[in-house]
Simulated assay, not measured.
Amino acid sequence: MKILYSAPNRAHHYIYAKGLFQRGGLYKFISGFSRLSKRSPITEPGFPMIKADLLQSLYVLSLRLPVGYRFQRQLAYWAKLEQDVVLSRYVPGSDLILFYNGCGLRSLQRARKLGVVSVVEVVNSHIAYQEELLQEEYKRLRLTWQGSPKREVKRRIAEYDLADYILVPSEFVRQSFLEKGFPESKLLKVPYGFSLPEVRPVKRGSDSVIEVLYVGSISVRKGLRYLIQALSLLQDLPIRLKLVGPQAKVSGIADLQLPDNVQFTGVLKGEALEQAYRGADVFCLPTLEDGFGLVLGEALSYGLPVITTTNSGGMDLLTDGEEGFIVPIQSAEAIAEKLRILATDTALRDTMSRKAFEQASALDGWAESLSRLTAVLKACLQLKSQDE
């Protein structure tokens, strides 16, 4: 098995690349992750990494300079094309190409001509699903919608259509492709693994105030307005909300009258973030669209009952009514209902806390995720050999 793997950033991609290399299946890894980052190198001896990050590095620099937004978007687009060009050079020596959506159309076309198996990796729902959902939300909030450039949307969809398979991280993402008419046989689901801290179950304090924690960006996409609106429906209960994360230019909550029991902390890391988890009673991720909410695993590891939406990847991590609740998107009423249950039923909250901790201990690590990835890629190659 000679896998040609390409990715524009670090995230889980370095883990996948190193794991495939250690299992003897990696042919080349084309990395678009900027060399300006201290985390850029992979020190594994003999690791076959090829850098395709010149334009990505220029894009990273542009974010620190007073240049226009349009120019930054253009650089970001060119960076993806650069990665595609470099990737295409190595297609002839591979059995299978695995590439990040938006960065491989040229390589994909070459792979099809050469009979090389192609897998496009997506980290979020179908791009058309995302665009439709977020455009509707911006319109509802009377905000200016920019969306993804049309040429990028077109390119991503072309890759979906031309690839032999689509690698998805969650049931939510898989369903978004099924809704767009893709056959189940084309979709490969491999959830991400977790490297969770070793946390002992937290004994919650006797404070009568229930603290709800959110960790993530303060943005329209994350659906925070619905969590804040839910609090306004619970004024008879002692609840406070702690929001941890950076604020986007368009937050989606600027028009709301924020109650006194909402606290913004900004970005927290290390011990400060750990203390935020330890001090909470409930975790809420009210997102409109997240391919796989890794913060949900972190929250479970601290024994926090979770309230999240159907569009978070939560269905792959917890069972509704056991370790928490899964609610519809854009529903302050549904969030308020579940918060009221957890705030007023101490026994249930304690039970869910225990189950959350147990569930976190049972979540797959990266070794299991890599084993699953390797198995599905081998199966793709075996199917091809049977067809020949």
Score class of each variant (00 low, 15 high):
residue 73 R to A: 15
residue 73 R to S: 14
residue 74 Q to S: 13
residue 75 L to W: 08
residue 75 L to E: 03
residue 76 A to E: 08
residue 77 Y to C: 02
residue 77 Y to R: 04
residue 77 Y to P: 01
residue 77 Y to K: 02
residue 77 Y to F: 15
residue 78 W to S: 14
residue 78 W to F: 07
residue 78 W to Q: 13
residue 79 A to H: 02
residue 79 A to F: 05
residue 79 A to Q: 02
residue 80 K to D: 06
residue 80 K to N: 11
residue 80 K to F: 02
residue 80 K to R: 10
residue 81 L to T: 04
residue 81 L to E: 04
residue 83 Q to C: 03
residue 83 Q to L: 12
residue 84 D to T: 04
residue 84 D to A: 04
residue 85 V to T: 07
residue 85 V to A: 12
residue 85 V to I: 13
residue 86 V to I: 15
residue 86 V to R: 00
residue 86 V to P: 00
residue 87 L to G: 04
residue 88 S to V: 05
residue 88 S to F: 07
residue 88 S to N: 09
residue 89 R to P: 00
residue 89 R to D: 00
residue 89 R to G: 00
residue 90 Y to S: 03
residue 90 Y to L: 06
residue 90 Y to A: 03
residue 91 V to Y: 07
residue 92 P to C: 04
residue 92 P to D: 01
residue 92 P to I: 01
residue 92 P to A: 03
residue 93 G to Q: 09
residue 93 G to V: 05
residue 93 G to D: 10
residue 93 G to E: 11
residue 93 G to N: 08
residue 94 S to K: 03
residue 94 S to H: 05
residue 94 S to Y: 05
residue 94 S to D: 09
residue 94 S to F: 05
residue 94 S to T: 04
residue 95 D to V: 01
residue 96 L to T: 00
residue 96 L to M: 05
residue 98 L to I: 08
residue 98 L to G: 00
residue 98 L to R: 05
residue 99 F to L: 07
residue 99 F to E: 06
residue 99 F to R: 04
residue 101 N to V: 14
residue 101 N to A: 14
residue 102 G to S: 05
residue 102 G to N: 03
residue 103 C to E: 10
residue 103 C to N: 13
residue 103 C to Q: 08
residue 104 G to R: 06
residue 105 L to P: 05
residue 106 R to E: 14
residue 107 S to V: 10
residue 107 S to I: 11
residue 107 S to H: 10
residue 108 L to W: 10
residue 109 Q to M: 15
residue 109 Q to D: 11
residue 109 Q to S: 12
residue 110 R to S: 11
residue 110 R to D: 06
residue 111 A to G: 14
residue 111 A to W: 03
residue 112 R to E: 10
residue 112 R to M: 08
residue 113 K to L: 14
residue 114 L to R: 11
residue 114 L to F: 12
residue 115 G to I: 01
residue 115 G to Y: 03
residue 115 G to V: 02
residue 116 V to F: 05
residue 116 V to Y: 05
residue 117 V to E: 06
residue 117 V to Q: 02
residue 117 V to M: 05
residue 118 S to K: 04
residue 119 V to F: 04
residue 120 V to R: 09
residue 120 V to I: 09
residue 120 V to F: 03
residue 121 E to K: 08
residue 121 E to C: 10
residue 121 E to D: 15
residue 121 E to I: 07
residue 121 E to A: 11
residue 122 V to P: 00
residue 123 V to H: 13
residue 123 V to E: 13
residue 123 V to A: 12
residue 124 N to L: 15
residue 124 N to D: 15
residue 124 N to Y: 09
residue 124 N to G: 13
residue 125 S to M: 12
residue 125 S to H: 10
residue 125 S to T: 10
residue 126 H to P: 10
residue 126 H to A: 03
residue 126 H to C: 06
residue 127 I to K: 00
residue 128 A to D: 15
residue 128 A to P: 01
residue 128 A to W: 14
residue 130 Q to H: 12
residue 130 Q to R: 13
residue 130 Q to G: 07
residue 130 Q to M: 13
residue 131 E to W: 08
residue 131 E to F: 08
residue 131 E to S: 11
residue 131 E to N: 12
residue 132 E to H: 07
residue 133 L to Y: 02
